[in-house]
């Protein structure tokens, strides 16, 4: 510290002032405007994360790793990873697989905005309201089961709430619009002239999709998968309200919540939160690693 002060003094005495030198490297009064926001995030995001990480190694009892040991030896805890993946991976894949053809149709629509507006509604309403709505709608006396019985598809109401399928449905209703709108923004970002060029060069509809669109879209789809997966993996309110929080849909965030607010074991809760973060990171990194295989760069065409 004192070294730099001395050095700065010398600079002031000879040559351009410190002010000028810093400005030349991009530091001036304007740059300082970033400090309040950065300080806030450091205090409320970086610090708690670091604090949580350290806290997770300071368990109530036992050695530094005992929280993690407990997590991976207690089936009531470690199975939550599997249960969460069992929900989040199929939902994310389904959302992505369905979003792609729909986005390809919607891209040709003239009144896209009406559809996108409708699809934004469930995202805006959020998971709690969707859970409450689905409790009514998918319940044994709800309109969904009634319709199926009236049509004659089933004899007895399907059990669709307070189990895996209730949570699955809520993740679909929340996740599909999110995935779809992301995919749509990637699809519409591709210069339509590329498809026309491929067509004039003799590529039929399927070849245009596999040789032009898919390779260009792949990085975007990878990002979409990651964002959608991370959202689905952190499912919480609907797993409690619509699922079976003590059994089939005891997802990892429920375990973390219970550790923190029912057992008041913040150290254990932090450990579970860290594990949650690591699983998400692992899937995201795995997905991003495959991105290296694809083309990355502008998709809007190659103008000038």
């Amino acid at each position: 510290m004192t070294m730099t002060v001395l050095a700065e003094k010398q600079i002031i005495e000879s040559g351009p002032s410190l002010h000028q030198r810093l400005a030349a490297r991009g530091f001036d009064a304007v740059t300082l405007l970033v400090i309040p926001a950065f300080a806030l995030l450091a205090l409320l995001f970086v610090y708690p994360f670091a604090y949580g990480l350290i806290l997770s190694f300071e368990p109530k009892a036992g050695s530094a790793w005992s929280n993690y040991q407990r997590f991976f030896t207690d089936p009531y805890l470690y199975t939550t990873i599997w249960k969460t993946l069992l929900l989040s991976v199929p939902v994310t894949v389904l959302n992505l697989v369905v979003s792609l053809p729909v986005a390809f149709r919607v891209r040709l629509m003239y009144r896209q905005r009406l559809l996108t507006t409708i699809l934004v509604v469930p995202i805006t309403l959020g998971t709690v309201l969707i859970a409450e709505g689905l409790l009514n709608y998918l319940g044994p006396q709800g309109w969904f089961n009634r319709t199926l019985i009236a049509v004659g598809l089933i004899d007895h109401p399907l059990r669709l709430v307070h189990n895996y399928w209730g949570v699955f449905a809520s993740l679909l209703i929340n996740g599909f619009p999110f995935t779809f709108l992301l995919v749509l923004s990637y699809v519409t970002g591709i210069d339509p002239a590329l498809e026309q060029a491929a067509a004039t060069l003799g590529a039929n509809a399927r070849q245009r999709f596999t040789s032009v669109f898919l390779p260009i879209l792949m990085p975007g789809l990878a990002i979409t998968f990651c964002l959608s997966f991370v959202q689905a993996f952190s499912v919480f309110p609907s797993a409690v309200l619509l699922g079976e929080p003590a059994g089939q849909t005891r997802v990892i965030s429920i375990a973390a919540y219970q550790a923190a607010f029912e057992e008041y074991d913040y150290s254990m809760a932090s450990a579970i939160a860290m594990i949650m973060g690591i699983v998400q990171l692992a899937i995201v990194l795995g997905m991003m690693a495959t991105r290296g295989l694809f083309y990355r760069g502008p998709v809007a065409g190659t103008k000038g």
Partner: peptide, 20 residues
């Protein structure tokens, strides 16, 4: 005929080169 069945060569204003 569909464009892919006509077999004409076309040069586009934006060139429309496949970026990948």
């Amino acid at each position: 005929l569909r464009p892919e069945e006509r077999g004409f060569g076309m040069v586009f204003q934006s060139y429309a080169l496949f970026p990948h």
